[in-house]
Design a protein around this nucleic acid. Sequence first.
DNA 1: CTGTTAGCGCATTCAA
DNA 2: TTGAATGCGCTAACAG
Lengths: 333, 333
Amino acid sequence: MPTIKEIAKRLNISISTVSRALHDHHSIGLRTKTAVKKLAAELNYEPNQTAIFFKQRKTFTLGVILPNLREEFFSAAINAIDNVALNNNYIVLTGQSHDDLNREKSLVESMKKHRVDGILASISKNTTSFDHFEQLKNFDIPVVFFDRVPDMPDVHSVSCNLYHSSVEAVDFLVKQGHKRIGYIQGPPTLSIRNERLNGYHDALAKHNIKPDNALIVSTDLSTEGNTNALDKLLALKKRPTAVLLFNDYVALDVIHHARQRKLTVNKDICFVSYANIPFMHYLDFPPIASVEQFPMEQAARAAELLFKLLDPGAREALPPYENIVLKSELIIH
Amino acid sequence: MPTIKEIAKRLNISISTVSRALHDHHSIGLRTKTAVKKLAAELNYEPNQTAIFFKQRKTFTLGVILPNLREEFFSAAINAIDNVALNNNYIVLTGQSHDDLNREKSLVESMKKHRVDGILASISKNTTSFDHFEQLKNFDIPVVFFDRVPDMPDVHSVSCNLYHSSVEAVDFLVKQGHKRIGYIQGPPTLSIRNERLNGYHDALAKHNIKPDNALIVSTDLSTEGNTNALDKLLALKKRPTAVLLFNDYVALDVIHHARQRKLTVNKDICFVSYANIPFMHYLDFPPIASVEQFPMEQAARAAELLFKLLDPGAREALPPYENIVLKSELIIH
DNA sequence: CTGTTAGCGCATTCAA
DNA sequence: TTGAATGCGCTAACAG
């Protein structure tokens, strides 16, 4: 494989001249410059990036850690990140935690080893401690969290506030005549800020509907957890006529299960869900509304923030920790 | 950031001794070895991988190029690759071509620049020339194609032969009483080997059913292409009562469209499809059967093959070009 | 406008 | 059992 040394030797000039010529340095004569470029092309010269990474102490690589790629939400996020990375001549190293804390930790380790310049992360549902991310500060690897963000100060984050949409969702259901509205909530780690629940509560209060704790059940997001949650609601003497669902994947299971139990969805019982993944449109009985959380926008904003952190000039203009919050939107189907 | 040089200085020993101690080299005294390791731990020493990559001329990074991650087929493949890579202490760089040849080319370029040790690829539907992959041979970057493999000699590949399942699919339909069976085929680049079509034809012949070219229509895999294809079949004087569909994503659109046209799926018209993605189970009217193409197995085999190619010892035992073919399986729902 | 020199962090050959 | 020396390929400070 040809190197600049090789080119220098053949042209009887110095290595640094070759280097500069290849970089269009202003102080290089046109004649030598063209000669160098010509020979480089002939030899099929390709700069050895590993040498450059080493020398520049940068790898032009971004790490992305997220729960999984199966969910359209996250594959959409990856697409947005890819685009931003591409514009900045960066490449993306993706890792899936599969909601396993240990796996998340080892992903952080291996990305650290590979010297990624920065990391974008959406935490696993089982992540309660954040030391593995914290230690990255010692290595000058900035981290920006998105969507599933830790509830901590001193982190950069981009997230989507679900409070208002939750209020809207209940408003919408009430307007449709519903009075008993249930809520299937997700695991506590993913609900620290309780935006969905707070919105739910506040909206009920607004409409003078007495809250009933029996109407609030939980799932660990497994299919079994999802169907059990619905069963609990259906076991009540006074069943809910509408239910908010933690997200569309919960909705898939819950709707399926409701129908197996011979309920007519959107008549006997209505659902509103979160995420608004396109796939739901193929269902016969989709949720009547879903909260759009803008994965692409979140991810893009997070990536842009990360690139600012990576740029010493831009970083100065930033607050010590930036926390961007987008607004979700209730989409009526 | 501490380096071995730093450690050497503090311990008043040489750099090479430190290096060797850290690697458990046999010729290092126990006393010095423990001293070195102790100090390294205290200083939080981390070897600079970029230096190692540079020196070793390896990056312990695999490139994966595939059409997109939205399709469960490919996200499953990535998971399988992740696992194999993890076992080999490799990390995975994923790129999506979005079925765009130019994007695929630039992915190859940037992976080459980043000096990945090897590449796994599933080609885009618009890929007709393979120079961008071919040139990698000059850089000693082995490529293994999987699932969507080029129809060329002199490449490594892992794919799934759909011929027998296609025959089985028709057998199955015939057994159900169908005599007019249509086929919606995909773009020519993805059907070079014509396994689906050949199976379809041979099976019809086997059952003495006269082939009818009007029953074979094409789609470019867009939603519009998919619905148009169905419309063409429905416009025939003698409509098919069953149709083979290129894959499950075509099936989603086709089934949706059939129902909008007031057909009762699985009664007025039956569908058999390819890919067998789990999501279909949430549909009310899924295809009655689907051909499992084993994305995880394909990807895992491809990754394993790639690691063999990366290992000089193992490579010797291999033929110049390995082409692994798995058998698909018809799954009746 | 061009060349000389040094050094990034590490593995490794050769010498002791 | 250890150390000295070399070089991977490239960039950049310094010198001319």
